Simulated scan of single mutants.
Amino acid sequence: MSTAPLCHHFDAGRCRSCSWLGLPYDVQLLDKQRQVETLLAAHDVAWLSPVASPQLGFRNKAKMVVHGTADDPTLGILNPAGSGVDLRDCPLHTPGIRAALPVLADFVTTARVTPYDVPARRGELKHLLVTESPDGELMVRWVLRSQEPVTRIQKHLPALRAALPALAVASVNLQPEHKAILEGDREILLTEQETLTMRVAGLDLHLRPQSFFQTNTAMAAELYERARAWVSEVGPGSVWDLYCGVGGFALALAGPAVDVIGVEVSTEAVASATLSAREAGVDATFVAGDATAYAVAAAAPPDLVVVNPPRRGIGAELAGWLETSGVQRVLYSSCNAQTLATDLAAMPSLRPVRGQLLDMFPNTGHYEVLTLLERR
C-alpha cells in the first residue's frame, strides 16, 4: 500500500493531530498490531487479521474550536499561542461535514455569534460540533458560554436550514466555565427532530445531542458485526452490555432467545437506546446507572457480559467482580490496550481466546481491539 496524500495542514505544520499521517497505511496497521500483541503477550490469544479503515474521509464527527471574530471566524484548533487554525477542509471528515463547515462559518457571521477568546476570557461561541449520519443527515451543536446568542441563532436558523438542507437536528449546549471542557450539562434543542439515526450493521441507532457514538462509522459497523458473529457461536441466553452507550452492542446481540440488558450512566444515551429498541421491535432493557454498581448489586451474573469502557478501562472493582462472579464469557471492546492488559491481569480465570484490532483511528497510534474471554 502506498503513502496517502498528505493533508496540506499537516505538510505546513499547522496541525499534527494525525501524527502517523506520514506513514504508509500498511505500516500503520502493522505497528498497531505489534503494539497490541506485545501488550497482551502474556495471553495465548488467537489474533485475527486487523480490520483496515478508509484512511481519509472517515470521521463522522467534527469537534471544531471556534476562534477569531464574528466577521472572520476560524473553525479548527488553537495553536500553542492561542490563535485559531482554520481546519474546515480537514480531509478526515466525511464529505458532508466538509461541505457543511463553510456554510456554518458563514452562519457565525450572519447570526453575529462572537467566538470565545480563550486568553481574554470573552466572547460566546466555544465549539461547533457537527455529526453526519450514514444517510447524510447532520446534527449541529453550538457550544456557548451563555444563552445570550440563542435568540439570534433561532432567528437565522430557517435560513441556515435552507442553505444546509441536510441539517436535521440543531441544539445549543451551554458550557459557562473557563476550562478545557468540550461541552456542558445543559442542552437546548432548536429543532423538532431530536435524534440523528445512525444506520450501521443492520441497526437504526438513535443519537441524541449528548450521546456518544463511535466517530468512524465503517469501523463501528465492523465492530458490531464481529460481536454478533462471535457471540452467536456460543449462544448465550442472557447478556449484559455494560457501558452500553446508545445500545449498539446490546441491539446487535438481541434476539428472541436472548435476554439483553444495557447499562449506561448517560440518561440521554439510555433514552436513545430505548427508542431504538422500541422502533426495531427488539426486546432489550436499558438502565441508567453506573456499570460497576449494577454488576456488584446483581443477584446473579448473565451468561455473557459485554464491556466497552472509556480509555481508563473497567477498573479493579468491576474486574474483580467479573473474576469471582462465575460469568462464563466476556466480550471486551477496548480503545486502550494498556488498560485492557491491566484489566486482564485482574481476571486470570477469564482467558482471552480470540482478538482482533479494528483501526477506528487511522493516522494515529490509537485503535479499538475486540477480545473474547472464556472462563478456564
Rank of each mutant, 00 (worst) to 15 (best):
F213L: 07
P310V: 02
D106Y: 05
A168Y: 00
E148H: 09
A105K: 14
E192M: 00
C7D: 13
E177Y: 01
G320T: 01
D303C: 00
L6Y: 11
Y294G: 02
Q175K: 03
L205H: 03
E187P: 05
L101H: 06
K126M: 11
T94L: 09
M64S: 15
Q154C: 03
G247T: 05
Q35W: 13
L304S: 03
H67T: 15
L40Q: 11
E187G: 01
D303P: 04
L144S: 02
L373Q: 07
G320F: 02
D72A: 14
L344R: 06
F249E: 00
S83Q: 15
A99T: 06
R152M: 01
A316G: 05
L358R: 12
D106R: 14
P149R: 00
A12W: 12
C15D: 06
S232A: 08
F286L: 09
A52P: 13
S325A: 01
P302F: 05
L253W: 07
R14L: 15
W230H: 04
Y332C: 05
A221E: 08
T274H: 08
I261Q: 14
P73A: 11
A250M: 04
L104F: 05
Q55N: 13
T110C: 10
S334Y: 06
G57D: 14
Q35S: 13
A319I: 02
L340W: 04
E187T: 05
A166H: 02
A293E: 15
P309M: 02
L318S: 00
D89G: 04
E323Q: 04
A41R: 15
A293T: 13
V66N: 08
S272E: 03
R351L: 12
Y294C: 06
V169G: 00
E148W: 10
R186W: 01
T38P: 08
R375G: 10
H366Y: 14
G76H: 05
S325K: 01
D106I: 13
V307T: 00
L344Q: 08
C90N: 06
E177Q: 00
A319F: 02
M347N: 06
R141Y: 09
V45E: 10
P102C: 08
V143S: 09
D185N: 00
T3W: 11
A284L: 07
V103M: 10
V27I: 10
C15L: 07
T342K: 12
E192D: 07
I97T: 08
N336C: 09
L160G: 03
L275V: 13
F10Q: 09
P73Q: 08
D86G: 07
A271T: 03
C15V: 09
L23T: 05
E268L: 08
R351H: 13
L157K: 02
V246Q: 03
V143F: 10
D241A: 02
L189P: 03
L182K: 04
A159E: 03
D343K: 09
P50Q: 12
F361N: 03
P310R: 01
E192N: 02
I314M: 02
F58H: 14
G247K: 00
L144T: 03
G355R: 08
K179Q: 06
L87D: 03
A319D: 00
Q193W: 05
Q175M: 10
L6M: 13
A62R: 09
V27H: 13
P348Q: 12
V270N: 10
G365F: 07
R375W: 13
P80D: 09
Y243S: 00
K32V: 07
K155A: 02
A162G: 04
